Simulated assay, not measured.
Amino acid sequence: MYDVIVVGARCAGAATALLLARQGVRVLLTDRAAFPSDTISTHLLHPTGVARLRAWGLLDPLLATGCPSIDTISFRAAEDLVLRGAPYPCDGVAVSLAPRRTVLDALLVEAAVAAGAELREGASFQEVIWEDGRAVGAAFGGRGGGRSGGFTERAALIIGADGRHSAVARQVGAKPIRDAGTFGCQFYGYWQGLPNVGTQIFVGGGQAVLAYPTHDEHHLVLVGWPHARFAEVKQDLDRHFLAAVAASAPAIAEQLTDATRTGSITGSGDLGNYVRESSGPGWVLVGDAAAAKDPVTAQGIGDAFAQAQSVGDRLASALAGGPGAVDAAMAAHGVDWERGGRAAFETTVAFAMGGNSARLLPVLRAIERRPELISMFYGVYAGQFTVEEFFAAVG
């Protein structure tokens, strides 16, 4: 019997497994994929998340893989207004990162295994095992790390870290607390040869274009549209993508040639904003399984890390107290996370709806030559400040 079974081994699940295993918790970490493997992601990690990697001892190993630091952001809010500044710092960290998920996820998984977690790849979650109304285990199909056929394991807690369409959430009947809807769609691709000038953001004309450096001297170039255009864009994705970049960022568009492109353009319109009930008897949800926001603010990886830290800080000591203590600790985690993340959720929804545009433009003009406030504006995107706190600071 394990103390915990973690279903899903990407940012939320692997980080949670890592923090628990380091405290001597007996962890079974499972995923239907094998690592390294890719997943749809905007990649960007704000200084808040970078600071957690440093605290966990994983920042230097990530940088050693060739992941470039991003210390400059340029934000074109209008034809005649470009804000240039640094990411807002967190615990002395003032850089962002945009690691490929093939690298970041594998690094987290390897660290969890090194800490003592048992990893079973190719394990497809099937169902929760119940006894007297409490989750006490999980059944899996697939090879489960070399085993033939399916398997079942028992644990004091099942941690669902299996994403937006969480099978664990369905199995335990996690109820929606908030469903704010879907407002955007995003697609991205990789190109070589772009100059590394940090993160570049271009907004306007009903779309947004972003470009930032990632592994192997590539840039991720991303376009976001309102969700109402999803079906149209999907019909001829390459044409719409390149036309959007040409309209919003012509200097970047000139460099997006077939010769410098790597792979196909990918993305998603499945970008709902929601919060689910996150814990119950014998189970807890983390990452997108518990709550998700539109990637317009790129808070997803940082949120996963923060939830992993919250669970890790509470669970190890609670396990000694038995099922009641475990459930109480996870309920407290859920309450604190929902309350603490409420403002960032509302800010993200407002950005995703485009509702802040008219309010922001005159304020952004007022801070054009005030670098400390430009960084604070980027802190709004990172969830460190609300729009109202930013407005108050501008005066």
Rank of each mutant, 00 (worst) to 15 (best):
D3K: 12
V7S: 06
R10E: 03
A14P: 01
A17F: 02
A21Q: 11
L28Q: 04
T30K: 13
T30M: 12
S37K: 12
D38Y: 14
I40T: 15
I40D: 02
I40W: 07
L45K: 01
H46R: 09
R52Y: 06
L53M: 08
A55M: 12
D60W: 01
L62A: 06
T65W: 01
G66L: 15
I73W: 00
S74Q: 09
R76P: 00
A77P: 00
E79S: 12
L81F: 07
V82G: 00
R84W: 00
G85K: 03
A86Y: 00
G92R: 15
V93I: 15
L97V: 06
D105G: 07
L107Y: 00
E110V: 11
A111M: 09
A114E: 14
G116E: 09
E121N: 09
G122W: 03
A123H: 01
S124F: 08
F125L: 13
V128M: 01
I129Q: 06
G133T: 12
R134N: 10
G137Q: 10
F140P: 03
G141E: 05
G144Q: 02
G145P: 09
G146R: 00
R147M: 13
G149T: 11
G150R: 08
T152F: 08
I159W: 04
A161I: 10
G163Q: 03
A180N: 05
G181M: 09
G184A: 03
Y188D: 10
Q192F: 02
L194G: 07
L194A: 14
G198L: 12
F202N: 01
V203C: 05
G205V: 10
Q207L: 14
Q207W: 03
A211H: 04
Y212H: 00
Y212W: 02
P213Y: 07
P213N: 11
H219M: 13
W225T: 15
H227V: 13
F230A: 13
K234M: 14
L237D: 10
D238S: 14
H240M: 09
F241H: 05
T257L: 14
I265G: 03
T266G: 04
T266F: 03
S268H: 00
D270K: 14
L271K: 07
V275A: 10
W283F: 03
D288C: 09
A290C: 05
A291K: 01
G302D: 00
D303Y: 02
A304E: 10
A306S: 04
A306G: 01
A306Q: 02
Q309L: 11
D313Q: 15
G322H: 12
M330A: 09
H333E: 13
G334T: 11
G334M: 08
V335Y: 07
E338M: 04
R339S: 07
R339P: 00
E346Y: 03
E346A: 13
T347Y: 02
T348M: 10
F351G: 01
G355M: 12
L361E: 04
V363I: 15
V363F: 01
R365E: 09
R365S: 10
R365L: 08
R365Y: 12
I367A: 12
R370C: 01
R370K: 14
S375Q: 00
S375D: 00
M376E: 08
Q384E: 14
T386N: 13
E389A: 11
F391C: 12
A393P: 06
A393H: 04
